[in-house]
Nucleic acid binder design. Structure first.
Lengths: 212, 212
DNA sequence: GTCTATATAGGGATAGAC
DNA sequence: GTCTATCCCTATATAGAC
């Protein structure tokens, strides 16, 4: 594959991602993608076997991006800073590939492999959230039983997975950073009641930033 | 419309609901519906203007069912019993019409009216949750600031809206009552940390029932 | 690599007989 | 009310020239 071919391939992926995010994958046709990329429909099929191939390719990029984040190099106990960073990174990647979350059942319904891989990502989300919470407990910032940690970790994963979809249902046209900020705030609000005195007010101040 | 026509119409709606819930609305064709109802494709279009008409009709039933639940006849302050009942009723209706939640963006994306009406339902969910939480505070069972109540109410609404979708992503084949039970448990776990001493253990016992 | 032209299939919806 | 037959459109995907 020459440099030119690689560049065309890249442009197809870029416009596909943009259109998918904007309209939802089911409503975007291959002709539309070709048109927007300024190539012919036939040329598109030279670079990709079919539409699912494009989706698959985009998913793989998403997957490697998010796995980078979910690899927690926990050499020390986590603090609230880790939590904050973790949430921001997660939300940013989800935003970048939001079409995957928008029509999740539809996309995964036609590909078992994809389903498995996505499931593994969610499992990791829960595990990472739990690890951070345990870190908070062991460093004394937070007080919670193992069952409580598990329940909160699952809720964090669910919120981080479904927040954008839910939010866009409620307030379609809100600006990006506000939506992501609200998401982080909502997730943090899950943790707040388990924090101890001083840390609780610290977080309280931090989270207020997002409610502008 | 004679009794016979009404009965056919009803059968179409019943099989549509079953197929939609099972496979997702986008993957069910009108021919499939007709076939499963043991009528001809043409006959289906005698009873319904088009496919969206069927979806619309099912949505209206869902809407009236859920609005019945969300009309809180609050003549007194709420207690945990109200919360428990509220959650169970909500989850049951969502389960019955789960196809609406499965492909929500896709279904609402092609109908502004539907979008508005669904948005109103969610707003009501948040409001009802907030009202119950305020009831818990005013009866002394719970301690929380207005901001905390608002944040928790939104999280309750999100969880009650997206739980099933999320859950079926993770564990496809779990039995119904277990899935709904876990959902109720997860929502209740949002409230637990705000409860006071005795109520907290009471709820703790109650919620453990769901983790079987 | 890229194009134009076209095959093919599936599903929504209608016509008209009974 | 219900059927059979069929139309039509859309979207995916391919063929073959350049």
């Amino acid at each position: 594959m020459s440099g030119r071919a690689a560049r065309t391939r890249e442009r197809i992926l870029a416009t596909s991602l943009a259109l998918f995010n904007d309209l939802g994958e089911p409503r975007v046709t291959t002709n539309q993608i070709a048109d927007e990329t300024d190539i012919s429909p036939g040329n598109l099929y030279y670079h990709f076997h079919n539409k699912d191939d494009i989706v698959h390719c985009l998913f793989e990029r998403f997957e490697s991006r998010i796995q980078e984040i979910l690899v927690t190099p926990q050499s020390r106990a986590a603090d609230m800073e880790d939590m904050w960073l973790y949430l921001h990174l997660i939300f940013e990647v989800i935003w970048e590939y939001r079409f995957l979350y928008r029509d999740l059942p539809h996309l995964l319904g036609r590909d078992r492999k994809l389903q498995q891989r996505f499931r593994r990502i969610i499992d990791r989300k829960v595990a990472t959230a739990a690890a951070i919470l345990e870190g908070l407990v062991s460093s004394g910032v937070m007080a919670a039983s193992p069952e409580e940690i598990q329940a909160v970790a699952e809720n964090i994963a669910l919120l981080a997975t479904q927040w954008l979809t839910f939010q866009q249902l409620r307030h379609r046209a809100a600006p990006l950073d506000q939506q992501l900020g609200r998401g982080v705030y909502q997730v943090i609000s899950l943790v707040v009641p388990y924090l101890r005195g001083e840390a609780r007010t610290l977080l309280d101040r931090l989270s207020r930033v997002y409610l502008v």
